[in-house]
Amino acid sequence: MKSNNKDNPIDIRPFGYAISLINGKWKMHILFWILHEDILRYNELKRRLGNVSYKMLSNQLKELEADGVIFRNEYPQIPPKVEYSLTELGISLMPILDALCAWGHEHVPDDWELK
């Protein structure tokens, strides 16, 4: 897939756009859990992610929402209830996430631990 043709430069924009949607320490983890649970509340997501700070999780969720990857549904009640789910754009990213998971299953060393 290499192209050294100087008359036909490589368009990096599609790759850059795709990476911008998932670029962030926790975004892929967030998408993984929402994919597997369909709908997650903030605290459920926080529990599944573990070491993520509240501020980092909030920022990553805001970015995913702003990019149209996830949907934030806020219910007007006390205490506040907020649920997150995938948008159509987010769902369209899932074959890529599935491919990464399949690759990981094939190549993860036996002694590797999630940090």
Score class of each variant (00 low, 15 high):
R47V: 13
R48H: 03
R48D: 00
G50L: 05
G50C: 00
N51W: 03
N51G: 14
S58P: 08
S58N: 06
S58E: 11
Q60A: 07
K62Y: 12
K62A: 02
K62N: 05
E63V: 08
L64W: 08
E65P: 06
E65N: 05
A66C: 12
A66F: 12
A66H: 09
D67C: 01
I70S: 11
R72Y: 05
N73Y: 13
N73S: 14
N73D: 15
E74C: 08
Y75F: 12
Q77N: 09
Q77L: 09
Q77D: 08
P79K: 02
P79A: 03
K81Y: 07
K81Q: 13
E83F: 04
E83I: 05
E83Q: 01
Y84V: 01
L86N: 09
L86W: 05
E88W: 14
G90K: 11
G90P: 04
G90M: 03
S92C: 09
S92H: 05
L93T: 10
M94R: 08
M94A: 13
P95M: 15
P95N: 14
I96P: 06
I96A: 15
L97G: 06
D98Y: 15
D98V: 15
D98F: 13
A102C: 10
W103L: 14
G104D: 00
H105C: 02
H105D: 08
E106N: 04
E106K: 14
